[in-house]
Amino acid sequence: MNINDPYRGVWPVMLTPFDDDREIDWESLKKLIDWYIRAGVNGLFANCQSSEMFFLSEAESLRLTRFVLDHTAGRVPVVASGHTACGLSQQIDQLGAMAETGVDSVIMISNRFALPEEGDDVVLENLRKVTTALPDTVGLGIYECPYPYKRLLSDEVVDWCARSGRYTFIKDTCCRLDTIARRVELARGSRLHIANANGQTLLPSLQAGAHGYSGVMANFHPALYVWLCDNWQNEPEKAELLAAYLSTASFIECLDYPVCAKDFQKSLGNFSTAACRVRGTEDYYAAHGPSAMQQAMRLGDMVGRQLGIPV
């Protein structure tokens, strides 16, 4: 893996902190950005599903992305989505406005290109139209977002993206090693990178040639993912042990994510609240979520120390 490749490594899917009125908490966002960068991440994925982009206005999405770019100040590259519209013309407007913010790549949502019952021919036709309409001065990417429904990319679509020369980034959520390996081969020799979002398959996907990690667990212990992506080849035994912990810890996202992630950020002093727009916090705090999350994070700290990994 080329360490000078800007699209390798760990790309957290950013949270959006809110205050008690569910308005964006800009001071907390500054702390979050600095926390990611101190952990050594390679880039940031702003205005994505973890950012609750489907619950932001278009004006908020653009302001949020510009704020991330301004506070990052070139320390790491930034990609962003905000691709939530249904109509193709509105999608082009959304993505064009996002491109104008100055992000390194604009990330499209795979399920926006066709209805669930429509075939991949519709996806490819609409993808071509949108790609042609966007300026070639910005990179493009695709995220297999599970909301409002998950649409996995066909080999034909991945191959087209790789051969187009326009695409830099696929956030892969297929969770299947055979599919990831095929995609790696389809992308070989192009500028297209495959970022796995799944912690359970991350290490074997890196071994199969995937370029890095872009998943929700980078909102809990990004430094461990950074170490794994950087060192799995040189220290394979440590990597196997760390991957076993990360695979297990990934189940934390089942605890009312993104509430659990925001609660963790609150425990670090980065966020003032765990407030979300996508769901309330009552069920999380009424159950065993906070305790389970904190214990998993403490175990991660212990695993990191025992392996000699800075955490």
Rank of each mutant, 00 (worst) to 15 (best):
R188P: 03
M217C: 13
L32Y: 09
M14S: 13
W26Q: 11
A243Q: 15
G74Y: 10
Y143L: 06
V311W: 07
G212T: 11
N231R: 06
L202M: 05
V216I: 15
P146W: 14
G289R: 01
D70S: 13
H83I: 01
S81K: 06
P17E: 08
D178M: 05
A195W: 07
P77E: 07
S50D: 06
V68R: 05
M53E: 10
V13T: 10
L192A: 12
G209V: 04
A274Q: 12
R63L: 11
A244V: 03
W160H: 05
G165A: 13
A244E: 15
C145G: 10
A287W: 10
V303S: 00
E235D: 13
C260R: 00
R8I: 04
T281N: 01
L268S: 12
H83L: 00
G199F: 00
L69M: 07
C260Q: 04
G87K: 15
D155Q: 14
L255D: 08
Q94D: 09
K262S: 05
D159C: 11
L224N: 01
A59R: 12
K262I: 02
R305H: 15
C260G: 07
I37G: 04
D172Y: 11
P6T: 04
L127I: 10
G199K: 02
A249M: 07
D93V: 08
S247F: 02
C175P: 00
L152C: 08
G74A: 04
Y143K: 03
M98T: 15
T201L: 12
L177P: 04
F220D: 02
G43V: 11
W227M: 00
T179H: 03
P17T: 08
L255Q: 09
C229A: 09
Q94C: 01
D172W: 03
H193T: 09
L192S: 11
R66Y: 04
N219M: 03
L69W: 13
R277W: 15
L177D: 05
L127A: 08
S250K: 00
V138G: 00
D5P: 00
Q306C: 08
V311E: 00
I309N: 02
V79T: 05
Y257L: 15
P236D: 04
S291F: 11
Q49W: 11
D256C: 12
A59Q: 08
A244N: 15
I180S: 01
Y225L: 08
S110C: 03
Q90E: 14
L56N: 07
L242M: 10
D93W: 06
A97R: 15
F67A: 09
N42H: 15
D34N: 14
A97Q: 12
A162M: 03
K266M: 12
L56W: 03
A249G: 00
A99M: 02
E27Q: 14
F264M: 13
T201M: 09
A208G: 01
I194K: 00
M14H: 05
C86R: 14
I194Y: 10
R183G: 04
V123A: 04
G212K: 11
A208F: 04
A80C: 13
